[in-house]
């Protein structure tokens, strides 16, 4: 099987010279859900930014191959069109840009880049409303500016809606559970699970086993000091809950 994502000996730093990713290796096959757990400040969010191409995050060694393409050669919007999606740990507010217009522009920009037919407004509105219903996002929120005045949980639902509309091959969920109440956690997890398919994969970054009860991973990695230091099955998450990261941090050092 050709891997969906292959990270080979990746080194990356944040502009200003701080090295955060330190010789990381990871292979994700189509259809797999991988969880990444690790201490605060280990570089998990940084990894997600490096993968999605955030300016100021520089790859200094190794490579990342996504669906056969070297990601370093693509701009963030090209990566998105290629099927990469980052569910932000802290989604941003965009004053003055309505949610619906934003979704429309995003969906059609991607389709255009891939040479697919663009969605008409009614098609898009129908799709978005359907997804909104599943995720408990009402019409009013769809008209409002992106994330402006949304609660933390609403922002996460909105991220999930974007993901479900854009149907990426690889979704990176950075603490999708933070700030969610129990009901919202179920709603978001159901959305994510609905996307699971033999060709779609997920990289789930979380601190808590709880999320993994809902989004059950195939593989769990421990990430410390900028690389994966241990890998196991879904039971590893439970172990970590009991033991913490101390042993792995020593391993990383």
């Amino acid at each position: 099987m050709t891997p969906l994502l292959e990270i080979r000996d990746l080194h990356a730093e944040i502009a200003g010279g701080r090295k955060i990713i330190n010789g990381m290796n990871l292979t994700i096959n189509p259809g797999e859900v991988h969880a990444i757990m690790g201490p605060n400040g280990a570089g998990k969010s940084t990894l997600s930014y490096v993968l999605s191409g955030k300016p100021g995050y520089e790859i200094t060694g190794g490579e990342v191959i996504f669906r056969g393409v070297n990601l370093q050669e693509l701009s963030p919007d090209e990566r998105a069109a290629q099927g990469l999606f980052l569910c932000f740990q802290y989604p941003l507010e965009i004053p003055g840009v309505s949610n619906m217009a934003f979704l429309h522009t995003a969906a059609n920009s991607q389709r255009k880049k891939r040479g697919e037919p663009e969605l008409t407004s009614p098609e898009l509105v129908r799709k978005v409303r359907e997804l909104g219903k599943q995720l408990g996002i009402d019409t009013d929120m769809l008209k409002r500016p992106v994330n402006v005045g949304f609660s933390g949980g609403e922002k996460k639902r909105n991220e999930t809606l974007q993901m479900m509309l854009l149907e990426p091959y690889l979704s990176i969920l950075d603490e999708a559970d933070s700030g969610l109440d129990i009901d919202a956690l179920k709603v978001v997890s159901n959305g994510v699970n609905a996307m699971r398919s033999p060709e779609r994969s997920m990289l789930v970054i979380t601190h808590y086993q709880r999320l993994l009860d809902y989004i059950v991973p195939d593989v769990v990695h421990v990430f410390a000091a900028g690389r994966i230091v241990h890998t196991g099955g879904k039971e590893l998450a439970l172990e970590l809950e009991a033991t913490g990261y101390a042993q792995y941090q020593n391993e990383a050092a």
């Binding site: 191409g53 919007d77 999606f85 965009i94 522009t105 995003a106």
Partner: peptide, 23 residues
């Protein structure tokens, strides 16, 4: 930051700028 957020959803740079300026 906003520009990157928009681009990460597939919106090309110029288009993201245009949306922000229009807003």
């Amino acid at each position: 930051q906003l520009k990157f957020y928009m681009m990460s959803r597939g919106i090309p740079e110029k288009e993201a700028e245009a949306l922000l300026i229009q807003a």
